[in-house]
C-alpha cells in the first residue's frame, strides 16, 4: 500500500485530527509500515468466509419500552466545556 502525504492529510481530516507537517511525515512512515505488515492477510484465502463481527452469537437483545429516570440537567451539562445552564454551547454552526 503506497500512501501519499495527501492521503494522510485526507484521513486526518476525516478523523478530525489537526496534524502538523511533522506529524504527517511520521504518520506516513508509521502507517506505511503497518499497512505493509497487515498485507500478510492477502495470503489468506477467505473465499466464502463470513465476516466475524462479534465474539458471541447473540441476537434479539431487547429492552422494555418503559421510561427510566433521566439525568437531572445539571448532571447532563456538568462535563460540558461550555454551556449556559440549559444548552451545550458550540461555536456558530454555519450552514455552508
Amino acid at each position: 500500500m503506497q500512501l501519499s502525504h495527501e492521503h494522510v492529510r485526507k484521513v486526518a481530516s476525516l478523523a478530525r485530527l489537526k496534524v502538523t507537517d511533522a506529524e504527517v511525515e511520521s504518520l506516513l512512515g508509521d502507517l506505511t509500515a503497518i499497512l505493509d505488515y497487515v498485507g500478510v492477510l492477502n495470503d489468506v484465502d477467505t473465499t466464502g468466509v463470513q465476516p466475524m463481527v462479534h465474539a458471541v452469537e447473540l441476537h434479539d437483545v431487547l429492552r422494555q419500552d418503559t421510561v427510566v429516570a433521566s439525568l437531572p440537567r445539571p448532571e447532563a451539562l456538568d462535563n460540558a466545556p461550555r454551556s449556559d445552564g440549559e444548552y451545550f454551547l458550540v461555536p456558530t454552526i454555519i450552514e455552508s
Binding site: 451545550f88 454551547l89 456558530t92 454552526i93
Partner: peptide, 17 residues
C-alpha cells in the same frame, strides 16, 4: 437539535439533546 444563532453575529449555537 441545534439552535443556530439567527442574528448572524457569530454567537454560539445551542445544542439540545
Amino acid at each position: 437539535k441545534n439552535m443556530h444563532d439567527e442574528s448572524g453575529s457569530g454567537r454560539d449555537s445551542k445544542v439540545d439533546l
